[in-house]
Amino acid sequence: MEQLINKLQKSFKLSDVKHQRENLTFVTVKKDSALDLVTHCRDYEGFSHFVLLSCVDWIEDGKFQLTYLLNNPSGKFDLGIRTFISRDNASMTSAHLLWRQIATYQRELKEMYGIDFPGSPRVDESFILEGWDEIPPMRREFDTKKYSEDTYFPREGRGSNDPATYMKSKLYPDDEK
């Protein structure tokens, strides 16, 4: 694994190399070279199996992290290729030509995070959320609790007490801070 990373380091600018396990390594690359690295790994390094494409929302940094997780079935190890894209007008080059299932991932990311993948088949078709008119729900700023409070109604008669506050009200109600 070390060897492979050293080799890749020569052609691609890898940063934040993290050997998570002996058979799992994560690296970060610039957005422009991410798919070059993915393609290189598939074609020359034996990473023939595409595991998943996932997104992590780092809202505090204004970034989406895209993770392309590749697997080398004969070497039995995984490489996670991270790249960070801007959250505003989020867009990434489509990788649907590399593996057949990637179009599905990209369709889901478009729907759930609002990341566009121009040219990806059926990327604009709704995948899971038919008739959804809120912001893409996997974005961190989408508040599930608020949504459910706005959409549904609470059960009558529910209400709880915090033990410490309740004890104060019972035992020393006059004591102010």
Binding site: K18, Q20, R21, V51, L52, V56, T67, L69, D78, G80
Partner: peptide, 20 residues
């Protein structure tokens, strides 16, 4: 802060969690 990918073999095949 960290991330990992965990896999196990379900009856349908590789079942994985990507966790951050």
């Amino acid at each position: 802060r960290n991330e990992t990918y965990i896999r196990s073999e379900s009856s349908r095949g590789e079942y994985g969690f990507y966790m951050v």
